Computed example of a mutant assay.
Amino acid sequence: MKFQLVATMAAGLEAVTARELKDMGYQTRTENGRVYFEGDERDIVRTNVWLRTADRVRIVLAEFKALSFEDVFSNVKAIPWADYMPLDAEFPVAGRAVRSKLHSEPDVQSVTKKAIVESMSETYHRHSRLPESGPKYPLEISIHNDNALMLLDTTGDSLFKRGYRVAKGPAPLKENFAAALVMLTNWRDYKPFYDPTTGSGTIAIEAALIGRNMAPGIRRSFAFEGFDFMPKNLLDDVRAEARSQEKDVDLDILAGDINQDMIEIAKVNAQEAGVLHSIEFKQLALQDFRTDKENGVIVANPPYGQRMDNIDDARKIEADMGKLYRTIPTWSKYILSGDLEFERYYGQRATKRRKLYNGALQTDLFQYWGRRPKK
């Protein structure tokens, strides 16, 4: 069966997720926070297993104008629900309404649920309440500017939950956000990579997964595993195919942190992810980094805001970074910060500045591209 699918992601990462999908062979259409593509059951499994930067993969069951609750009811009821859900399906309905005439999300949810119940009851000739005792089918109706999407979530827990992070420190980066930071750089698996403020190790681990071409979702479960219309062997097949594509390459990845306790936490997570042998974890103060290597890449998420109470301490770190990193001009540096005055304290204007959202927190990725080393 062919489906209209949509991958969702954090604001600012649409182009990264679209590039992932295009590299996988899909034609895409991008909107704010969404990338649309088409696929069958295997594509649902494949994208859930392989997408590094998305949050979810959903099936678009219907799209329609929603100017009234009658519009919602009639269009939702017209969906052939029995093609997707059995009689005993549990189908929680989430609702979102932004800049639309129908602004009451509880009412939108209620009308949607009522339409589904009526449709299912008629199809299955059921006159009593639907049992909802079977597998879960997470639904969402999303209305934006009076345009409604009826969506079925195939993912379950967000794709950032890879399953390897068994320990974490304060305010860790989500795994898919960390992967996006790496994918926004010019790093390749033959280049040195350095994460100077590694914390629980997420950036370095995601770099290692990318370098070794390891599918990020290979260890986790998904909502689609309970769907009647999904062939039961597909996930095993896609996992086996993904394992056959992993690369056994030597990576030059260094992850440092001043806190030895965090280094131990990062090692546990890297072990769970299967990449401990691909990363050198080292207790190392940011100021003590030295290298004679060239053409490397630094990706840093230094403490700031929620992770550091004292802004003066945060800005001292920024100044230390600028002073040290100017001594390695062939290295490219990508530094995430919520400090709007970062460039002033770092001591250099960024080559490029990209606005991203780490959850609800607006941050900027300050990019300093390295010059080519002399031959």
Rank of each mutant, 00 (worst) to 15 (best):
G322I: 03
Y357V: 00
L356V: 09
D339S: 04
R354T: 15
H277M: 12
T291N: 02
E272M: 11
R290A: 02
G296R: 02
A242C: 04
L254G: 09
T330M: 10
I258R: 14
Y304F: 06
N310A: 10
Y325Q: 11
R315N: 03
Q245D: 15
L286R: 00
L254D: 07
T351D: 15
V238Q: 06
D257A: 10
M262T: 07
A255V: 05
L286Y: 00
T327K: 09
E241I: 12
Y325G: 02
L251R: 07
K247P: 05
V268G: 03
R243K: 14
Y357N: 06
G256P: 00
M308A: 12
L340Y: 11
A240C: 06
Y304T: 04
Y325C: 08
R243C: 07
K355C: 07
M321K: 00
N259M: 12
R349E: 15
G305M: 11
R354G: 06
K267D: 03
Y334H: 05
D248C: 11
S244D: 15
E246K: 04
A319V: 06
E280T: 15
K267G: 02
Q306L: 15
K316M: 09
N301L: 06
K247V: 13
L284Q: 03
S332E: 14
L336H: 10
Q306W: 13
R307L: 09
D257C: 08
Q283F: 06
D257S: 09
R239D: 13
R243F: 09
F289M: 12
R307S: 06
Q306N: 15
E343L: 03
E294T: 08
D292A: 14
L251A: 06
P302F: 04
F289C: 08
R349V: 11
I328W: 07
I253A: 13
D250W: 04
G305L: 10
V249F: 09
I335P: 00
D250K: 07
I253R: 10
P303Q: 12
Q271Y: 13
Q245S: 15
F289T: 12
D288M: 03
R326N: 10
N259V: 12
V297P: 05
P303W: 08
D313S: 06
D250G: 03
Y346D: 04
D237V: 14
Q260R: 10
I265Q: 08
L356K: 13
M262A: 08
Q260E: 15
D248M: 12
T291D: 01
Y325K: 10
M262E: 11
Q287H: 11
N269G: 05
